[in-house]
Design a protein around this nucleic acid. Structure first.
Lengths: 214, 214
DNA sequence: ATATTTTTAGACAGTATTGTCCAATTCGTC
DNA sequence: GACGAATTGGACAATACTGTCTAAAAATAT
């Protein structure tokens, strides 16, 4: 091994490290170039691995793609449930605590690499692999919405909010905290911390005008 | 011409009709297959036109793609400004009038073919053609947001709303009217009229709880 | 140190696609 | 009906990519 010709990541060592590195590079390339445009040689180079190794690990392009989606979906789900578990059930300052939660939700689940990647893949290839993506939705967003709605219901029950429909409130909360970010994220920009804070503040202010204890 | 072998649309007659038919079919295929996966022969077949005709009209694949984006962007912008011009400046029933406006906005601009197609293309290829899509954003969404904000400002000035920041209100209004539809649209579903009505009603109810005259 | 498994680089066949060329045909127009 | 422009279908070269195969090299376990 005279020179390491891996351009991006230095050639990973173990068996599992290679598997991960392949998934990572493949996610990158699938998102950047689309399924058809994704080039196995490019993935191999970016993973610091030979093409044959990819075929050894994953069989073929379609299987690799599904492995990528599954991996991203798993991580994304984990992030969601982790973050939702930090919901302010006993808030001191409701505005501030909800805003901080909104920042966490945006930063860890919606604006991060896995979140944006997964959303792009769903948009681009969702109709070609319906069961794969419906499975993701049912395991992920659907369940995390229920979890979030339960937290809002508890907040209302504790006298901090006035809600008719906790599910609707959860959906609208998520919609509001992205209102300021959607357009810039469409073109691939990653919002900075100040943008996240501002967006969360605006969203929670409006949310509490609508649902705060009068 | 013994048998017409065009599978989808019957072979269009005039010169301009062909141009349109090509753009239409190309939009379809680009959205369905992605830029790299889009096959010129397939576009030709779906347009009811020979492949050579596509090259005569548009030169090459990339030029065709840009023509598609420009066409969709133009239509989409026109829809936006048309619809915004129906904003209820002198509402009788504010809830009902805003909800009806929200339905129009969703149906004519966001959930229709051009809107979803354009959004998909931006998401998929926006980073490859930054100037093309930044041009679209500056000519379209940016300006239509300003126009919508002006309408909300007028409504506030007329005593129908209590707003600090009309631009923010416009962004949040749009975010809210999509809160219930985002997830289903992600997988390609087109919401029916009842879903549009329900989503608009929920959105406007919350919007007025936040910004309605006390 | 040796045996076994994994990885590598490259060659390779098969296939698909883009864009060009051209002769025959059709269409719009006078 | 006749002329010029547009259209068609098909052949064609050039290129690119997937997935397989192989022998050599490296890594890992014994």
């Amino acid at each position: 091994m005279p020179t390491d010709n891996a351009p991006d990541s230095c050639a990973p060592r173990g068996h599992e490290e290679k598997r991960l590195s392949i998934i990572e590079a493949a996610a990158d390339v699938f998102v950047r170039e689309g399924y058809s445009g994704a080039n196995i040689d490019l993935i191999a180079a970016q993973a610091g691995v030979s093409r044959q190794t990819i075929y050894n690990h994953h069989g073929d392009k379609e299987t690799l793609f599904m492995a990528v989606v599954r991996e991203l979906a798993e991580r994304s789900n984990a992030s969601y449930f982790n973050t939702i578990s930090t919901f302010p059930d006993h808030p001191g300052d409701l505005q501030a605590d909800l805003a901080a939660f909104a920042v966490r939700l945006n930063r860890n689940c919606i604006c991060n690499r896995d979140g944006t990647f997964l959303r792009k893949l769903v948009q681009a290839e969702g109709e070609r692999y319906p069961q794969l993506f419906e499975g993701w939705r049912d395991q992920g967003p659907a369940r995390s919405w229920i979890a979030l709605a339960a937290r809002f219901a508890r907040l209302a029950h504790g006298g901090h909010l006035e809600l008719d429909d906790p599910d609707l409130a959860a959906r609208q909360f998520v919609a509001l905290i992205n209102a300021d970010l959607n357009m810039s994220m469409m073109l691939g920009a990653v919002p900075g911390d100040d943008a996240l804070q501002a967006s969360a503040g605006n969203a929670v202010r409006t949310f509490l005008r609508a649902f705060g204890k009068r």
